[in-house]
Design a protein around this nucleic acid. Sequence first.
RNA 1: GGAGAGGUGGCCGAGUGGUCGAAGGCGCGCCCCUGCUAAGGGCGUAGGCGGGUAACUGUCUCGAGGGUUCGAAUCCCUUCCUCUCCGCCA
Length: 426
Amino acid sequence: MFDVKWIRANPEAFDAGLERRGAEGQSQKIITLDDARKATVQQLNEWQETRNASSKQIGQAKAQGDEEKAQALLAQVADLKSKVQQGEETERLQTAELNDLLAGLPNLLLEDVPAGADENDNVEKSRFAEPRQFNFEPKEHYELGEQLGQMDFEIASKIAGSRFVVLKNGIARLERALGQYMLDLHTTEHGFTEVIAPLLVRSEALFGTGQLPKFSEDAFRTTDDRWLIPTSEVSLTNLVRESMLSHEELPLRFTSLTPCFRSEAGSAGRDTRGMLRQHQFYKVEMVAVTAPDKSLEEHERMLGCAEAVMKGLDIPYRVMRLCAGDMGATMMRTFDIEAWLPGQNTYREISSVSVAGDYQARRMEARYRDENGKPQYVHTLNGSGVATGRALIAVMENYQQEDGSIAIPKVLQPYMGGQTEISAAK
RNA sequence: GGAGAGGUGGCCGAGUGGUCGAAGGCGCGCCCCUGCUAAGGGCGUAGGCGGGUAACUGUCUCGAGGGUUCGAAUCCCUUCCUCUCCGCCA
């Protein structure tokens, strides 16, 4: 959501920003709509001013028992009522048209976001560890899982359809261990507050984080008109909706382990094998709420928190700066962490860490009082820290052994009751 | 699901058709007094949009959205939320 005043003051910058997104400039259209709206409001205000003054006099006249004067005044303002009503109706329509336009616009990108059309134009920012050299042909996670008898896509599809999985035994516990490890890391080392929040949310919440109105087809909707969260970014970010925070309580940092539900509309045929792209998956999410001048450093900090998860697991990864064409609509800058997957012989996204600026805060009416007591919109950030389903894949593929068993990373062993590997037995 | 009661400023809480954007309190800010650990006094203190260099000023906002009225925090309708009792239930 944008500040129309800012667009009025910086129309070229605004249009240039949209063009970097591959969208058309909208400043002229917005300003024209806003001009019309302003003219209506101005006229309306004049009528209301007259009406209010007269009404006050009528009240005084009646209080003094001067019925004659009251009647005379009443006659004077008789036609104002319909004018005001029409003016209000016009303003309503004009405001709605303007807001609908604004609500559908993507966020502007930060200067340092690389230009580009799609993921092939993303730019590597850093890299951790070298891919392990295998003295056998590494398998993909679903081969390993199925051979272990602990990962079952067939029965899942009978129960729920495609893009679901059933995990059992050691693999199931491994995913649980990953979630525990990540949550503990973020809460004890990184200063995040653990949260359990609703998985079903109302439309307003999805609008607040920007999934609505444009991306409704990506999420599942319930028959009672709620939505399954596509990410707990929604629940966690909306924790501050419609609130007035004080500058002392910032930054706020929340983390949560939740299932995420995505319809994956439009990704038919992509990653259909295995559990890389599912309708339901677990993810540890991090959300931060900061003062505007702190959000960029928080972005780097949050990336560090996600990287710490990967370093702890000792899984090779690279950090990518997403290019303009590959970025989500609500964000100003995004860093992806891509884990090395030996079975696929490539890096795949496992975490996405983004700064939204005040884009979401404006939609949610999330503000704080700065040091001078002035209300300001907060900045919001979110990042996966990390997707446990994909982390499971990464652990399985990177820690696989020649006999098809899977070694358990050191940091996870305490969460696995001391178990050091997953084999067909357990 | 049934019956009832409510939603007011950063917070609490008055206010049932006119001078109410809203008493009072808390909190916060500035100032003063006192003088010693605990208090007293004064003033100020919502947000959005618009006009003005500014002082200031117009308008809107009392959960949200409609409506009645010359005029709505106050009346009507819809909706969301909270609380109490009953029912159901992990």
